[in-house]
């Protein structure tokens, strides 16, 4: 109801949302330590180019990615979230990614129901030897999110 109190000086505006030539989405990427993070490393050492749109957070396993992390990232204004782990059957902890697979399927339906575009959250499997695939995945994900434009909640405080 009541409006927020005002401060004498307005909050400084975010330089990154100013007049930029071309908008690049800000994507939070949760990468599994054993496969996808190594895959990203390989992409780097192999000098494969991919868009600089992801902010990588290394996690021990895709099964460690609490859905709350993804929800929080979106709620705080991230344009997209990408989670990548070992291929099914290859999990370093044997079954972490199997649990993650169910969880992500439910989470994606949940986000769709709440009106977040399903493309904003992307899940993939990338192994340690798939440097080229990692670059391709990032390009695909970035392109999908670029088409969607900035997050509905992005204006809130710029994550």
């Amino acid at each position: 109801m009541s409006e927020q109190a005002e401060f004498i000086n307005p909050a400084p505006s975010d330089p990154s949302t100013g007049a930029s030539e071309e908008w690049t989405p800000r994507i939070i990427a949760f990468l599994c330590n054993w496969c996808s993070y190594a895959g990203a490393d390989l992409a780097g050492t192999s000098r494969i180019q991919y868009p600089p749109s992801i902010r990588v957070i290394r996690v021990p396993c895709s099964g460690r990615v609490n859905p709350q992390y993804i929800i929080k990232a979106l709620a705080d204004g991230a344009d997209g979230v990408m989670v990548s782990g070992c291929h099914p059957g290859d999990c370093h902890y044997l079954e972490g990614n199997y649990y993650a697979r169910r969880r992500f399927a439910v989470l994606k339906r949940l986000l769709s129901l709440a009106g977040f575009h399903p493309d904003r959250v992307q899940f993939t499997w990338v192994s340690a030897s798939e440097g080229a695939k990692f670059a391709e995945v990032v390009s695909t994900v970035t392109e999908k999110i670029r088409v969607l434009g900035p997050s509905e909640l992005g204006g809130r405080d710029g994550a």
């Binding site: 992500f104 439910v106 339906r109 399903p118 899940f123």
Partner: peptide
């Protein structure tokens, strides 16, 4: 409970390149 177990052949619906029925 359903989220406390898994099947090796659970559908890959949520994944990039999956048939994406999850996405509605």
């Amino acid at each position: 409970p359903v989220m406390n177990r898994y099947e090796a052949d659970d559908p890959q619906v949520a994944f990039l390149g999956g048939d994406c029925i999850v996405g509605i």
